[in-house]
Design a binder for these strands. Structure first.
Lengths: 210, 210, 210, 210
DNA sequence: TATGAATGAGGATTCATTCAT
DNA sequence: CATGAATGAATCCTCATTCAT
């Protein structure tokens, strides 16, 4: 947790530090990121850095926290608060499209987040054990979907929750790789939702006799 | 490419070096990994390391090569060679189950591989541009599946190929997180294949009138 | 170019660093010179060295720059500015005597300069291509001497310029070898100038019949 | 002094070692020269090197010895043995032209020799104190020249001997810098001898009334 | 609180020389 | 004698963090 001195900083200066940190952490892994580069990027003295933060990790955790907050801001809070009024696929579509927008509009934040997922030790240090997983959220969503009769009741919610999480990352990755895919955003999402809904089996053939 | 001196080493010693390297690279990213730790872990002098390898990257590339070879050894070469005799889902099941076995039996190798996918610069240095992607493979498989009438011909093969790749990673991740899931291997795979095949929609309800 | 931190140092400390560097570079070639020895000699931490300089070469270039400046300070700027008022041999005498004084008073600086002339690669890195050679200067001087009628117009200015440069080095060498010669400075110079002027032929005999 | 094992080597192999050493020492200073490069260049094992030589310096001294011998071979022994039959300038011309030929035909040997002159410590270790100087030789030559009436008896033989030595180096340098001068060899030498003989003063003017 | 210099613990790499076979 | 692997001291350089003002 940053020191009080950091929060007492004039907004503009505090923001400069945050921006410099995001720049550096987006570019390099936590270990490779250099405190000097951040201080220089923010236009503050090295010594000041340690007036504001315990150490490099302290800043990093703070940045991750900001990213999580920012990510949440992308979610349609209103819709989430009134989940019960929406169908499962409607909600899923909303979640994915907001996630994709975040990825496109905040690519550096996304990069930092992704890099964190690849450093298990650091990940646990940042999130502790109460790993507020995206899995948890999807599990609830799935439970609701089954209860509402939208979903096949025989699916394994734990497995599917994980897959939905992974597919969310997959979407982000498409963006991160910058346009490997030539579809516009909603088209990708709708195709993906269709797959999730119906799978890839050639149903026409299978249902031929129907 | 390691120097001849390395390949002339007695098997036991060479293996010690490889093991020490795998230990270190599984634990830390390429940048964080310490040559000293590897040398110490292998019980050789620092100087010896540089008799065997050009530099740290030289060793790393070699280890990656070993991992790729090892991974290939897990694949059912016979089945792949006779692809045309098998159905799409049969092949996919085989691929996933072999991949999962590799992940369970060689978790450290998997970890190194995953960490490499997160360092784009290094990744390209190791693989060059001829990156024989898993995507490519799945695209061919999908084309065959559509041609054979196994798959819905309206799916987007590029998107689906990517999703199949991601799901493969997802499987590995389950294992890497060590038993978060309480299903046995084939059960996971079959459930996953079922989802891929049929999606998660409540078909019973939908087809009620049929 | 040293970093600002170096120039912001208290004079005394900065001078200590410079002295330690001169000591080391006078004793050992650029490659042999040890940064640690310089840091230790200056009483600073290894890390500080790299706060002041980019790297070893950065310091070396700076020292060379100082030497050049110092050498220039030995030259009679006034006389050089008013070259046209002096005869060729008068100017040459001045140049040689000033050069000799520099060599005697700053032997370590001389040693560094001489050692640089023996590392062609480094030399070019330090001076680039605009190598303001001593040859160039002597060529101009010779042209003037011929125009003024002081010099035999049939001499080859390029060759002679080079020889005058070499003789300048020869003078420095006498000094560097510490008193191999028992003449006092001006006597050496006058003898040398006499040789340059008249050669070593026994003119008395040759002109006997005149 | 190389060990007996070295001298017992088949000629061809011994020569390979010598050539490899000359290559390396011509390219890099003594300190920078790598024993490994020499061993590799000669096609011998590292261990063998130390069967032949005490250490790197041992080989270096030996190479210097060879160079001195080779240099002597360039001198017209016959003429030197019968010095008394030749005039001073005749002998000087011979010495310089032979020296120049050596420089042109054995540039790598020359390079090694020159580099040695720039490492005083090493120089003394190689030659000890009995520095068989070229100076000594020229002094004798000058004494003879004066006795014969060829030279101005008022010159300082010690100074002039040194200058003649330096001019010899100057010649070598011209060659080493590869054709900075567009004169053919004998022309350079004759011009140089003329300068040494007569100096550069405009004698025509001075002797106008004669 | 701000500053920026000082510190020193690493870490990669080189290479002469020794050693075991 | 030949071989070539083994060794480890030396050296440059980086950078998080501390300190003094």
């Amino acid at each position: 947790m940053p020191k009080d001195t950091f929060f007492n900083l004039p907004d503009e200066k505090r923001q400069r530090v945050i921006d410099a940190a995001i720049d550096e952490f987006a570019e390099r892994s936590f270990h490779e990121a250099r405190v000097t580069a951040i201080a220089e990027g923010a236009g503050i003295a090295m010594g000041s850095f340690y007036q504001y933060f315990e150490d490099k990790k302290d800043l990093f955790k703070y940045i991750i926290e900001l990213i999580v907050k920012e990510k949440l801001a992308y979610i349609n809070q209103d819709m989430m608060a009134n989940m019960q009024n929406y169908g499962f696929f409607q909600l899923l579509r909303e979640i994915y499209s907001r996630g994709l927008r975040f990825a496109k509009e905040r690519p550096r934040l996304l990069a930092i987040g992704l890099s964190l997922t690849n450093n298990e030790a650091l990940y646990h240090e940042v999130y502790g054990d109460h790993v507020q997983t995206s899995d948890d959220f999807f599990r609830k969503l799935l439970a609701k979907g089954i209860a509402d009769g939208d979903l096949d009741p025989t699916i394994d919610p734990i497995l599917v929750a994980r897959l939905l999480t992974m597919l969310n990352y997959a979407l982000a990755d498409f963006v991160y790789e910058d346009g490997k895919l030539d579809l516009d955003d909603m088209e990708i999402i709708d195709k993906m939702l269709n797959l999730i809904e119906n799978g890839i089996k050639n149903r026409a053939a299978a249902l031929g006799g129907c």
